Simulated scan of single mutants.
Amino acid sequence: MNSASTPPPPSRTDDELAQADPAAMLRYGLSFGGPHRTALFGDGAVGAAVRLDRLGVPPRAVAFLAKVVRSGGARYAAELEEPVPGEAAAEQVRGWLETAAAVVTGPDGDEQAARWLEAVAEILSLRVTTRRAAS
């Protein structure tokens, strides 16, 4: 099938994307790869960015967390008292990190988790920048 006949993916609202379960998507995306990893880095990253945006988490905090995961691992990052600013956001992100830590094996798994956090940070940054430009 060529790309000209491939239909575009279905559109989803922010509310629909925010309903995604990043922990489950991390569990399967980091464990199995393939379409699970595609979903993790697609809808999973966008949904996580929507959630964090709504909680007021700055993109730089998520980008910094990705560096922490890359340097110390998902387990280390999950044990941080406040992995991102804000109690509600920190609780959510800690859950995501705990899930990642439970399934990653070694530096390659931590690298994938860090890349996912970088994707979330980039999407979050794009949302913030677009909102500023629109106002």
Rank of each mutant, 00 (worst) to 15 (best):
S125M: 07
A78P: 08
E82F: 04
L52W: 14
L52H: 13
A133N: 03
T38Q: 06
Q19V: 00
D108L: 14
E87T: 10
R51L: 13
R12G: 01
A89M: 09
A61Q: 08
V93D: 00
L65T: 02
G106D: 09
D43S: 08
W116S: 02
V84R: 09
E118L: 13
L17K: 09
G47F: 11
A101L: 06
T6Q: 15
A119M: 13
M1A: 10
E122C: 02
E111Q: 15
A49H: 11
P85Q: 12
A78C: 07
S5L: 13
W116A: 05
Q19A: 13
A4F: 15
G86A: 08
A45D: 03
E79K: 15
G95Q: 07
E82T: 14
T129I: 11
E82D: 11
F41R: 06
A4D: 12
V103Y: 13
R37S: 14
R51S: 07
D14C: 03
M1S: 13
L30M: 10
A66C: 10
E118V: 12
A133V: 07
P107N: 12
V50A: 09
A101T: 10
A61W: 08
A114R: 01
D110I: 13
R70T: 11
A48Y: 00
F41P: 01
D15E: 15
E79D: 14
G42C: 00
A66R: 03
R94Y: 05
Q112L: 15
A101F: 06
L80G: 09
R127N: 02
S125N: 10
G44N: 05
R132T: 10
P10I: 04
A77D: 00
A90P: 02
W96Q: 10
E98G: 14
A113G: 07
S125V: 00
I123H: 09
L124R: 12
A20W: 04
G73K: 01
P83F: 04
F41C: 02
A119Y: 01
L26Y: 12
R94W: 02
F41W: 04
V62K: 06
R132S: 09
M25W: 09
R70F: 13
L117C: 05
P83R: 04
A121C: 03
G29A: 05
W116E: 07
L30Q: 10
R54H: 03
L40P: 02
R60P: 01
L52Q: 13
G73L: 03
S125K: 11
A20N: 11
T130P: 00
K67F: 04
R115F: 15
R115Y: 12
E79T: 15
N2R: 12
G73P: 04
L40G: 03
T129N: 06
V57H: 14
L17E: 07
P58V: 11
R27C: 08
S135A: 11
G29H: 08
P10A: 12
A89F: 09
V104S: 12
A49Q: 11
V57M: 12
Q19L: 09
A100L: 14
S135Y: 06
G44M: 03
D15L: 06
P9C: 01
A63N: 14
